[in-house]
Amino acid sequence: MNWSTSVLVSNGAPRWLQLAEIFRRAIESGEFPVGATLPTEAEINTQFGVSRTTTRSAMQQLVQEGLIKRRAGIGSVVVDTRVDQPVNQIRGFAEDMRSRGMMPGYQVLGCGMAPASLEATQSLGLPSGDQPFYVERQLKANERLIGHSISWVRPDIFGAKTPPTSEQLAEGSLYEWLRAELGIEIVGGVEYIEASLATQQVCPHLDVTESDPVLVARRVARSRQGLPIEFAIVTYRSDRYRFRVDL
């Protein structure tokens, strides 16, 4: 059904919510592909006989859902939908992207044994002075930049084994390497998620400007035996990523 042939019902949901649903379906069906501009507020007001307030409420709902962006001088533009991350699961970025039919990608910015922050040391339960394995990467899905991660892995799990190289980390998942090379499987842990603003340090790695909204996840990943294996700080672009709670 074309958006212009849709109608609002008088005894149904609020008119702004019905309007949002009409354009949500139009976007999901491909009637308005990524990059397309929705009709102007004036056109929508005339077509459906609604007020500017009703139309703006509907458009704001679509903005909150990550379906459109309001751009000055242009209007409401359809954007790529965000990647959903269930908050009741802990799994590697590569596994998560593949489960959605997307191709994970990495750009390694640095790795090796290095001093850790106090937060990382305490989260891993390491003695003062221990140097965990450190890896910093950009995270991509289908070649699209999604996030930036810094991970610290406890050093005592490697034994005589050489930690993964930057080439290995650019090609695959850290969790998959731990499972294949050390027999360590990440099965749980704890993750804290908060809304924040992009810092000067992370901006060049996310292609955003300072104070743009981002999502920051701090995670302690544990092995099947309950040992804390990794402490990670992952910063996601909020226009391309969101967390989902399954109830």
Rank of each mutant, 00 (worst) to 15 (best):
Gln225Cys: 13
Pro155Gln: 04
Glu143Pro: 11
Ile233Thr: 15
Phe158Tyr: 11
Ser123Cys: 10
Val214Arg: 00
Gly110Val: 06
Pro115Gly: 03
Pro155Met: 03
Trp177Ala: 03
Ser123Glu: 02
Gln131Leu: 12
Pro204Asp: 07
Gln168Phe: 11
Lys161Pro: 10
Ser151Val: 11
Leu227Trp: 06
Ile229Thr: 01
Gly105Tyr: 00
Tyr241Thr: 00
Ser149Thr: 15
Leu145Phe: 09
Leu169Val: 10
Leu215Glu: 03
Ala160Asp: 13
Gln131Pro: 11
Asn142Val: 06
Met113Gly: 12
Gln168Asn: 08
Phe231Thr: 00
Leu169Tyr: 02
Glu167Thr: 14
Val214Ser: 04
Glu210Trp: 11
Ser173Cys: 06
Ser173Met: 02
Arg224Ala: 15
Gly226Asp: 07
Tyr236Val: 04
Gly112Lys: 04
Glu167Trp: 07
Ser196Glu: 09
Pro132His: 05
Arg219Ser: 11
Tyr236Asp: 01
Arg154Pro: 04
Glu119Ser: 11
Arg137Pro: 04
Pro132Gln: 02
Arg144Glu: 01
Arg224Met: 14
Gly112Met: 03
Ala160Cys: 13
Ser196Ala: 15
Asp156Gly: 08
Ala232Trp: 04
Glu136Val: 06
Gly226Arg: 06
Arg224Gly: 14
Leu182Gly: 06
Val234Asp: 13
Glu176Cys: 12
Ala160Trp: 10
Cys111Ser: 08
Glu167Val: 14
Gln107Val: 15
Val190Cys: 11
Leu124Pro: 03
Gln107Ile: 15
Val190Phe: 14
Ala195Phe: 10
Gln138Ile: 06
Leu169Phe: 05
Lys161Leu: 14
Tyr236Trp: 09
Gly101Trp: 09
Ser196Leu: 08
Ala116Gly: 08
Val220Cys: 07
Met103Glu: 14
Val214Met: 01
Gln225Tyr: 07
Gly129Arg: 04
Asp212Val: 12
Trp177Ile: 09
Ser128Thr: 10
Pro115Lys: 02
Leu182Asp: 07
Ile233His: 10
Leu118Ala: 14
Val208Met: 05
Ala217Trp: 02
